[in-house]
Design a protein around this nucleic acid. Structure first.
Length: 482
DNA sequence: GCCGGAAACT
DNA sequence: AGTTTCCGGC
């Protein structure tokens, strides 16, 4: 029997579902071209997913520093992961091994001295998620530099609303609070909207812009405020569902209602350093702990007051950065945008969101005991087997027992929990009380699906294209169009 | 508990 | 590639 995990649901209907407005992780993020199974959820995705859900707070939760989380119930997390991956024998030991592989990738690192505590390197996560982002011209980068306190170079042109618009042509309009756009009279709709720059205070900067940001050239001193400048927004409703192992109606997993308006949520949850720059009146309703949820759900984010604004600037970071070298270990929290960009531009954004191996099932895989000479008993024996909603999640090996199941916290109620009306974001935001320390959300993340690659587009416009190629192509197309 | 090598699996 | 599985070592 096959394991109907996420991949199955994601693979058919190819793109549309994935491009549902508001989806946190666009289709391309899953690197469909990389391998047949590239859409399978990755562990860190899963971790983030758990982290953002209140029902799993007792299992795993943000704690401590930015991006730091504690696995309160390792066994349970492992079990859930096992369910997701259809690996009945998953345990914390194995899961943690997988987590350790993230050390090298700079996605995670261990918080030394704290049991079961890890920390996300959000910028890496972001980079991984935004391979298409033109970092070279992205004003966001500038912001980063600004926040890093770099020095200016003369050749910076301002970021115009038009520029932003071109960068993020599909920025949706937020449903509540200050709109991200100002409608231009003549041209309603996305194309007629102008991005409200005041909504992106962090984009502006009178400060310096760099032809080559220092932060890209190497590690920079740790500054808590900038640890995760483009952090993955742990508050964002997940792009994943815990229970996609069982057959569920696709809608329950990826319907637009499942996701909040990412733009709104992201922007309203500006990264810590940026959020502090928000104009007092410009934080969206979601902020300041208002009850603002459109669905009556409490807002889940808290944006600090706005100390002032900064002028705009644009940078020309043509060549991104240098590669990042060494792995980050321990508490040293370096990297971030610098390293990330370097990796992204230099290495072609190596990490993909997608895992490999389509759901799968099948396979004539040897059992561990067969594989190894040593006969080792699986600690998770069949003794406590139970079956719940894993019915469709067969083990990869017919001989293997099913999952030892415990109750799944809120699995059933999650979808409604996460429900958010399109355009509204409050609904999915976690309650302030459950907020981890302000972690930087990633504004771009929501902008992500800059444009779902229309099926009509030439194949070359596929996500697999390099940033540069893509850019060129896009421009070419534009020209052709005009 | 945590680490990371090694090999296998998808 | 991203785990999964196992394992020896600290």
């Amino acid at each position: 029997m096959d394991c109907n995990c996420v991949s199955d649901l994601l693979l058919t209907p190819p793109v549309p579902t994935l491009w549902t407005p508001g989806i946190a992780f666009p289709d391309w993020a899953y690197k469909p071209e990389s391998s047949p199974g590239s859409r399978q959820i990755q562990l860190w995705h899963f971790i983030l997913e758990l982290l953002q859900k209140e029902e799993y707070q007792g299992v795993i939760a943000w704690q401590g520093d930015y991006g730091e989380f504690v696995i309160k119930d390792p066994d349970e997390v492992a079990r859930l992961w096992g369910i997701r991956k259809c690996k009945p024998h998953m345990n914390y030991d194995k899961l943690s091994r997988a987590l350790r592989y993230y050390y090298n990738k700079r996605i995670l690192h261990k918080t030394k001295g704290k049991r079961f505590t890890y920390k996300f390197n959000f910028s890496k996560v972001v980079l991984v998620n935004y391979p298409l982002l033109d970092m070279a011209s992205s004003p966001f980068l500038l912001a980063q530099n600004h926040f890093n306190g770099g020095t200016a170079t003369p050749d910076c042109s301002p970021v115009t609303p038009e520029a932003l618009q071109s960068l993020f042509p599909r920025l949706p309009e937020s449903g509540r609070g200050p709109s991200l756009f100002e409608r231009s009279a003549g041209a309603p709709g996305p194309d007629g909207d102008k991005l409200r720059l005041d909504t992106f205070p962090f984009l502006s900067s009178g400060a310096p812009c760099y032809s080559k940001p220092p932060s890209l050239l190497g590690p920079y001193p740790r500054n808590p405020a900038f640890d995760y400048p483009w952090g993955f927004n742990p508050y964002l409703p997940g792009a994943f569902s815990l229970n996609n192992c069982p057959k569920l109606p696709p809608g329950s997993l990826y319907s637009s209602s499942f996701y909040p308006n990412p733009l709104q949520s992201s922007l309203s949850q500006l990264p810590h350093p940026f959020s502090s720059l928000l104009p007092p009146g410009d934080t969206t309703g979601a902020e300041r702990g208002q009850t603002g949820g459109t669905n009556g759900q409490p807002p889940r984010l808290c944006i600090p007051p706005y100390p002032g604004s900064v002028p705009l600037g644009r940078t020309e970071l043509g060549n991104g950065g240098t590669g990042v070298g060494d792995r980050e270990r321990g508490e040293t929290n370096t990297s971030i945008i610098g390293g990330g960009l370097g990796l992204g531009l230099g290495l072609g954004l190596g990490l993909g969101l997608g895992g490999l191996g389509v759901g799968n099932g099948g396979g004539g895989r040897q059992s561990p005991s067969e594989r190894r000479k040593g006969v080792k008993q699986d600690p998770e024996s069949d003794s406590e087997l139970e079956i719940t909603d894993l019915s469709d999640c067969s083990s990869e090996n017919e001989n293997e027992p099913d999952f030892p199941l415990r109750k799944e916290p809120g699995v059933g109620g999650r979808s409604h929990l996460l429900e958010a009306k399109s355009g509204g974001l409050g609904g999915v935001l976690p309650p302030l009380s459950s907020l981890p320390p302000p972690v930087s959300p990633h504004p771009l993340k929501s902008l992500g699906p800059l444009t779902p690659p229309p099926s009509s587009l030439p194949p070359s416009l596929s996500p697999s294209l390099s940033i540069v190629d893509r850019q060129r192509e896009t421009e070419t197309l534009k020209l052709a169009h005009s």
